[in-house]
């Protein structure tokens, strides 16, 4: 980023470095939420529909993990992906892939816990009907996830908000490399440490606008879907 440029100049002057950072932030956080959702949606629904010894323990644990400290997740993924760590041979530390993985781990408990709650409530409503229709367990999960899709967008947004706003994991496993792993949040941290507080604040506002924008899009999509699907 050019020295002395104000945030306004950056945004409206079409600074390509800023757009690259915004793009990377979106790419990493959206991918992380998608990856986490692939695991956490079925897993949360599975937990909602089953009873087995130890289930309560897992549910409490997942609820607690919604508050996982990002730096701890970052550190764990760092140790995992480091060349000296068990997955070091992948060579993905300090790359966007590592950031996606770390953020996915961070938001997985959020999506799983909220999905379990949503699906459990819906299951209370659907249980007799689906049982009377003799729906197989796997299809129950699919049906409930699909019918809860509008509530689940909020769940995914909660995950996205957490991913897009956090700085701890991406700083540690991404390394804040200029033009490669620098995201909005790590750029803000960097500008703060350089003492350029107005630029840091400007970037912060851009990030907030970005998060609001994504939420507005999702909300719009949800409304349209609800109107069409009833």
């Amino acid at each position: 980023m050019p020295d002395g440029a104000s945030a306004l100049q950056l945004v409206f002057g079409g600074d390509p470095a800023l757009y690259a950072i915004v793009g990377l932030s979106l790419y990493v956080s959206v991918s992380a939420v998608a990856l986490a959702a692939l695991v956490a949606l079925p897993w949360g629904a599975f937990l909602a529909l089953t009873h087995f010894p130890g289930r309560t323990f897992i549910v409490v644990l997942i609820n607690a993990f919604m508050g996982l400290p990002p730096v701890v997740v970052g550190l764990a993924v760092y140790l995992l992906l480091s060349r000296s760590g068990p997955l070091g041979s992948l060579g993905i530390l300090f790359t966007p892939k590592a950031m996606i993985l770390a953020q996915a781990l961070l938001v997985m408990p959020i999506i799983a816990a909220l999905t379990r709650q949503t699906i459990e409530d819906l299951w209370a409503e659907y249980r007799e009907e689906l049982t009377a229709l003799r729906v197989t367990p796997a299809r129950r999960v699919a049906t409930l996830l699909w019918d809860a899709r509008f509530s689940l967008t909020t769940t995914l947004l909660a995950g996205f908000g957490r991913a897009a706003a956090e700085v701890g994991t991406v700083m540690i496993v991404g390394g804040n490399i200029d033009g490669f792993t620098r995201t909005m949040t790590t750029a803000i941290a960097l500008e703060t440490s350089k003492g350029d507080l107005p630029l840091a604040m400007g970037l912060g506002l851009v990030l907030i606008v970005l998060i609001v924008g994504v939420n507005a899009l999702a909300w719009g999509a949800r409304r349209i879907g609800e109107v069409r699907a009833g």
Partner: peptide
């Protein structure tokens, strides 16, 4: 048995899809 019996509830659950899809579901 699991087949050839069906039930209609006092307040049936309508799946969040079209009327036709609700029938196709069964």
């Amino acid at each position: 048995p699991d087949e050839r019996l069906a039930m209609v509830f006092q307040r049936p659950v309508m799946l969040r899809r079209s009327a036709a899809a609700n029938v196709a579901y069964a």
